[in-house]
């Protein structure tokens, strides 16, 4: 009986230990509006082995009879114990009450273990869109993916 119990505990411990290397990918997003004012956000994170990659962005637009204002923020983070990690983020003004942004983050541990995430956002006075895709891969397993897409219409149509 004691032997059976020990074997059962050993099996559970093996499964728990094996789970520490599990790959994961998660995304989320949200948005809301009131009249011609709205905000949007999207983000995601992926992890596999010792690698992790995260990107996210938020943005908003507010239009009144007197003025229109847009703002946005976007960023990425990546890390790994071995191998390489890199991020790129940019957010440019379109010149016509708009912003375009993109963030990329990726971490490659080597040996087929990697994580990456990308976020795009477009901010306009009449429409807000944001989307994120996160992926992770571990050797011998299918890649895991997660995507999020958000859209807020401020046109009043």
């Amino acid at each position: 009986m004691r032997l059976r119990t020990s074997l059962a505990v050993l099996t559970v411990a093996l499964l728990a230990c094996g789970g520490a290397d599990a790959q994961s990918a998660s995304t989320t997003g949200t948005g809301g509006s009131t009249g011609r004012t709205g905000t949007i956000g999207s983000g995601g994170s992926a992890a596999s082995g010792t690698s992790s990659a995260t990107t996210l962005g938020t943005g908003g637009s507010s239009t009144t009879p007197d003025a229109s204002s847009q703002s946005g923020a976007i960023g990425g983070s990546a890390a790994t114990a071995d191998g390489k990690a890199s991020t790129k983020s940019h957010l440019n003004e379109t010149g016509s009450n708009g912003l375009n942004g993109q963030a990329k983050a990726q971490a490659n541990e080597g040996g087929g273990t990697w994580s990456k995430s990308m976020t795009h956002e477009k901010i306009r006075d009449d429409q807000l869109t944001a989307r994120t895709k996160s992926m992770a891969h571990a050797p011998g397993e299918k890649p895991v993916k997660s995507t999020d897409r958000q859209q807020v219409d401020l046109s009043g149509k």
Partner: peptide, 17 residues
């Protein structure tokens, strides 16, 4: 990351999968 516009806003947090 967070953005507010008028009286509304959003906040997103991501990390570690």
């Amino acid at each position: 990351s967070s953005t507010t516009a008028g009286g509304s806003g959003v906040r997103v947090e991501s990390g570690n999968g």
